[in-house]
Structures are given as C-alpha cells and as structure tokens.
Design a binder for these strands. Structure first.
Lengths: 201, 201
DNA sequence: GCAATTGTTGTATGATCGTTCAACAAGAAA
DNA sequence: TTTCTTGTTGAACGATCATACAACAATTGC
C-alpha cells in the first residue's frame, strides 16, 4: 500500500492586500526593465507568478494597476522624507538621494516610463498632482529649515521647484546616457547650482 | 456623349524623401498626442494619410521610423543652436527656449515619450548619444562665450551638463503638471540657478 | 505613345493585446 | 467533517498589433 500523500495545493492563496502588493511589485519590475510598452497583463502576471485574471480582480484592469504602481513608485521617496515625521536636514536629504538605494537605474527607469504616460493620461495626471504637492511641500520645508526659517516662504518654494526639476533632469540623463551623467557629475551639478543659495552642502 | 474625364489618380506619388518626411511628422504628432503606446503603424499611417505598407517600405519597420523620429525631434533644437554657424549668445539662447516655438506641451511631450523608450532600448540609446554630444558641446560653447572664453573649459562643460539636466526636468514637470510649472516659474528656476554663475541673463 | 522604374496599396497572417467569466479550490468558519 | 467565503485559474473572445508581399499604378525615360 502506498501511503496517500495529501494532494499538493495547486496555487497559493494570499490575502487581497498581499496579492495586490505582489502584482504592484511585478508591475514596477516590468516598467523598470522594459518601459511602458512592456507593461502588459501577460508580462506582469508571469513575473508575479500569478494567473491573468488577477489584475482585473484586484485592480479592475490594467489602468488601476498602473495607478497603484505610480503611488508605489513615489512611496520610497515620500517615506524617506517623512519617516521621522519631518524631512531630514537638507544635506542628509541630498546625500540620501545619491545613495545606491535611490540612485539606481532600475528604480529611476520607472519614472521615465511613467512620465511619458502621465503626460498624455489625464487620470494619471490627477493622481500625480496629489503626490507631487506632498513631495514639493516636504522639499520646501527642508530648504526653509536649512535657512533657519520655521515656515517656507515664496523663495523657498521657488527653490524647491527648481531643485525638483533639476533632480528630474538628472535622472533622465542618467537613465538615457549613463556614460555622460555619472553619479559624481550628477552630484556636482546639484552642488554647483545650489551652493550659491544654500551655502556648501 | 459624356466627355470622358481622365480618371482621378487613386493616390499621390511622392519622392522617397518627401514620403519619409511626412511619415516622420505623423509619427511625431502621434507621440505628442498619445505617447509611445499610441505609436502604432495604424495610427501613424492614418495620420499621414498613407497606407500601412509604407513604413516598412521606407524605414524597414517601426523601429526604423522611431529612430528617424528621434533625430527629427532633435532637429529644431540643433538648428537653433547652429543656424548661424555658432550658437547664439546665451541670453538669446535661453530666451528662445521659452518662446512659444520651443516651450510647447505638444512638442515637449515627444521628449517624454522617447525618453521612456531610450532608457530601455540600446539601439535608441546609441542614437541618442550622438545627438546629445553635439547638443552638449553647443551649450558649453555658448556658456564659454558668455564668459569671454574662446574655448569651453571643464567648468563650462560641467555647467552645460547641469543646465541641460535642469531644462530636461523643467520640461518633464511642465508636461506632467502644467499647473505647477508655468512658463514663468520655469524661467525663474533657470534664472535663479544660473545667475550666480553667469551673471544676470 | 510605350516600357521600365519605383512608390503605393491593402489583404493575409500569426502573434499578442485586455477583458470577461464560469468553474474551481484553498482556507476559514461552523 | 461540512459549509461558506473568496481568492484563483485559464480558456474564450474580439480587437489590435507588426510584418510580409503580390498586385497595382503613377511617374520617368525613352
């Protein structure tokens, strides 16, 4: 008599939150690797090791997952800016942006993939605005603190706008021409343009 | 007797160069409107008023057309920087970047669409490098001239790198959140960050 | 006019796309 | 155990994708 094994489960059953998180991670990985054109149901589900019906079930469709991926792309940045309740000191903040954790092609590629889509997709544009405003306010606060102000004045807000744009552009160049925009050059660009306004950082 | 009209030609026959140019223009229009995901044979040929076989015939396939579109996207910028044999004076150059001709969402959207693709497409990356180096050299030359130098020194090159990144980032923000990055704010950002190095512009 | 050239058309093809949904099964509750 | 809830599967569907190519026709050269 062969002892009967309990049959191997055909799939693993996750909580809705867990499964959603795995699909988002897979979506981000696909965006980083192949850009927005690789963001397909097949690619994502294969990467996540899940079946094709799940994206519809958990996100209502591909667009829903894309919006969730956008929020997830912002998460590490906002977390770093908020994890102590307030943004870190500006020099620390900038240091962090050039660590291996933040300054990685695999991570930054995601922004390029998403920006091209946000520019022509009103729903994602609305989604973006919320995250951007939080992000901008936190950067402006860090700048104001660095100047020993308690609240950000218009000058701080304008400088935050400029710094955000500069970082975006650095990420673009780093992703499309790494030979020309090394981490050192990127850092030097930020130093050079900010020092006259904020002192040596 | 009805006088026999010469039959209406069923299509207009263009020279290879003309047709190629029309397809490139249609491709750019599609990128500006719908991003890289709208860059399909059907969309492009419909926009160009041509049949679907032509992209294969003139460019060998969609990838060939995309590379041609990338070169065409750079053309207005490089033309502006070279049309007098040398780049314009730096203040004029920056003024031009904020005219209606250059600072338009329809035009700048094209960059966002392409960047997301270049980041994950080695062939386009190689294509990009050529154009970028020309672009960078011209900007650096304009900066050197503005400082009364005959040739660009390392400081000029670094500042050119920073300025290019800043412009890229401004274009990104302007395309994905026009409410937050108006033309005036964009201009102010460039002024604020460059003035300490180049004097009032 | 006539033949050669070459730009153009549009269908056929097979692959892949996003979505839907009925059947299923894993785990929780009874 | 049995029932119930709900996460999961995967096939089916119609739409759309890029490409190939044989037939065609506008123009050029003669």
């Amino acid at each position: 008599m062969i002892p009967r094994q309990p049959p191997e489960p055909r799939f693993k059953r996750l909580s809705a939150d867990q499964r959603a998180a795995e699909l988002v991670q897979a979506g981000l990985a696909v965006l980083a690797t192949g850009g927005i054109t690789a963001f397909t149901i097949d690619n994502i589900c294969k990467r996540a090791g899940a079946s094709r019906g799940l994206i519809g079930h958990h996100f209502g469709g591909k667009d829903g997952l894309l919006a969730a991926c956008y929020a997830a792309a912002y998460a590490p940045l906002l977390l770093m800016l908020q994890d102590a309740g307030a943004p870190p000191a500006l020099p620390d903040l900038i240091d962090e942006l050039f660590t291996d954790r933040q300054f990685r092609r695999e991570g930054l590629n995601i922004w390029l993939a998403l920006w091209g889509e946000i520019a022509v997709n009103p729903r994602l544009q609305a989604e973006h605005l919320k995250h951007y405003r939080t992000y901008h306010r936190l950067i402006a606060t860090a700048i104001a603190r660095h100047r020993n102000r308690t609240a950000a004045d218009p000058e701080d807000l304008a400088l935050a706008t400029a710094l955000i744009a500069l970082l975006d552009g650095i990420w673009v160049e780093f992703c499309i021409a790494p030979q020309e925009m090394s981490r050192d050059r990127a850092r030097a660009a930020v130093q050079t343009l900010l020092t006259p306004h904020l002192g040596p950082i």
